[in-house]
Nucleic acid binder design. Structure first.
Lengths: 221, 221
DNA sequence: TAGATTGTTAATCGATTAACAATC
DNA sequence: TAGATTGTTAATCGATTAACAATC
């Protein structure tokens, strides 16, 4: 219990804890924050605090019971009633996301997929028929879809955004590298894969600079 | 100039500034932090600070010259010599990433793509031939590839990770929902799309709770 | 008992926000 | 001059880290 308020950072780490716990051999009954931190490459204290906030089954010297900890984290991640989402744009990225595993794991349900191309309408992506983009607003409203993913080319993104908003969607995850205008009560999260990779690359360069500045001193193989 | 040190958060926002600047009609010569903040839905002061850190062409009452600001941000994002990266796993997600637009924009070059399936070897993704996964380590080392993207099924992710590390890759972006073990000098960033969407969904739920708690008071249409 | 581990309380760090002086 | 906007300096906020007492 104790779900009072978890920081965004903690929430981001929970799935990784869950993944680690599930990767444990069946025989392991207990696990400590120390072990998890080492395995996941995270700070020991951070992990301990996260676990303490999430599960009250921890005992000194013993650690946490795997089963209970797993259950508690899982409960926290799913917790609410399933949220329905839609994907607009059945190109490669849209299809990849539609087939991405584990949405149910997080209480998410892919309720509809859309594309503009008449040639695609009616064909299926997994078990789902592709619906025409023109029906986005109506379909979202009908199915109580609150979340929309945009995976269309940048030129088409704003129109799709407008349609989603018209359909009552309140959260938009935009994969098109385009700037979108939306009313203030709609949350738009922009995902720019190229930019994200650029940031990672810069991280690499910075690390390297640091190392060479240190003259490779203090490096333990 | 003044590229001393930009915070990660600032670096994350820069691409959005760039996108906004490029979306401006050709006639607009100057733009203020106030305008950009409003358009992008960001805090006014945050934007002002970011711009001040990035470009010294700002003038009171006038704002920033669009051309110079665009150039300075662009320079900052590319700045270093191009970084080579590889993608292992030519499923839907791998192909989507391979075709994602704008990597060059951030000084990134997709140098090689790999897959395990013998039926795919030799066929092309865009201009690039798919190479066999067995050659990952050698190919990375030969081509000076420092960054690897993993888009294989979770079961195969650890092997791919090992191969990349063996090939000298120092930064890994892992899209498989799997926990990876890597040496401490290798940075592994985990991307779990389902978990990220779950977090967004939770955000939606929290917002909604807040609103209803406020009894919808103070909402201005 | 001894020692590892939990969980809490205080200190540090980084980023955002607020306040305000400088300037075109 | 007046007023909008920049850029800086101080205050707030949140998260991480460090220190330590509690406990099995």
């Amino acid at each position: 219990m104790g779900a009072e308020h978890l920081s965004v950072q903690t929430l981001r780490r929970l799935p990784r804890y869950l993944g680690f716990l599930r990767s444990l051999p069946a025989g392991v009954a207990h696990v400590s924050a120390t072990q998890m931190a080492a395995a996941l490459g995270l700070g020991e204290v951070a992990v301990r605090k996260d676990l303490a906030a999430v599960c009250n089954g921890g005992r000194p010297r013993t650690g946490y019971p795997v089963k209970r900890l797993t259950g508690d984290i899982h409960k926290l991640l799913v917790c609410r009633e399933p949220a329905c989402f839609a994907i607009v744009g059945m190109g490669r990225l849209g299809r990849a996301l539609a087939g991405y595993p584990g949405f149910a794991e997080y209480g998410l349900h892919l309720a509809a997929v859309f594309d503009e191309d008449p040639a695609l309408i009616g064909s299926a992506v997994g078990p789902r028929p592709i619906l025409p983009s023109a029906t986005v607003a109506a379909a979202c409203r009908e199915n109580g879809i609150g979340i929309g993913l945009i995976t269309v080319p940048p030129e088409a993104a704003q129109d799709v955004c407008d349609a989603l908003v018209a359909g009552g969607v309140r959260v938009i995850w935009n994969f098109a590298p385009a700037h979108l205008a939306a009313p203030p009560d709609v949350t738009v999260q922009h995902e720019n894969m190229a930019a994200s990779l650029g940031l990672l690359s810069r991280h690499l360069a910075d690390e390297f600079t640091k190392e060479t500045e240190n003259g490779e001193r203090g490096k333990q193989g």
